[in-house]
């Protein structure tokens, strides 16, 4: 995936450079400026992710969101999913591990959904772009939506 992204970037950059050097230089300047603007928030997010993931204990999570934990387990799973931010390629093996550890599928549905759509630790970055109100509302709606996901997965899969 990264290779595709980098190839596309280099191709676009090359084409742009051939067409107009000045414009390309300006584009790179803009890219740097936009990156530098968000860098402090990004660094905070990355430190927070490390902190939270180290403190959270996998075995304990499996127990709390077990198959018989019901809606309370779903709520707990949604909360854990909202706080943690795990890159997707780590998230799914983690979820599979939690299921093996005894977590219920409905609860995992809420966990995965919240993990992807709700981001408490990324909120400083989101607020910078969307403002407080839109950020809080988006995360709140996404949080509530995880219960619908859990419900449907409970019907269909579990």
């Amino acid at each position: 995936m990264n290779i595709a992204l980098y190839s596309a970037t280099f191709l676009a950059l090359g084409a742009s450079f051939l067409k107009d050097r000045g414009k390309t230089k300006k584009a790179l300047k803009k890219a740097w400026k936009a990156f530098e603007n968000i860098l402090p928030e990004l660094l905070v997010v990355i430190l927070l992710v490390g902190f939270v993931l180290a403190v959270v204990d996998h075995a304990m999570i499996s127990r709390v969101i077990g198959e018989s934990s019901g809606w309370l387990g779903v709520l707990f799973a949604a909360i854990i999913g909202s706080i943690t931010l795990i890159p997707g390629f780590v998230a799914f093996p983690t979820a599979a591990m939690l299921v093996q550890g005894g977590a219920g599928l409905m609860q995992i549905g809420a966990f995965v959904s919240a993990l992807m759509m709700v981001g408490i630790v990324t909120m400083p970055v989101e607020i910078k772009y969307f403002g407080k109100k839109a950020t809080v509302l988006r995360n709140l709606f996404a949080f509530l939506f995880t219960f619908i996901v859990a419900m449907v997965i409970g019907w269909v899969v579990a």
């Binding site: 990264n2 676009a12 390309t24 990355i46």
Partner: peptide, 18 residues
């Protein structure tokens, strides 16, 4: 972050210009 973010911003700069 270092793998993914730089190309995204470069593409954005180009999108913005072109």
């Amino acid at each position: 972050m270092l793998m993914v973010i730089p190309p995204i911003f470069v593409l954005l700069g180009l999108l913005d210009m072109w």
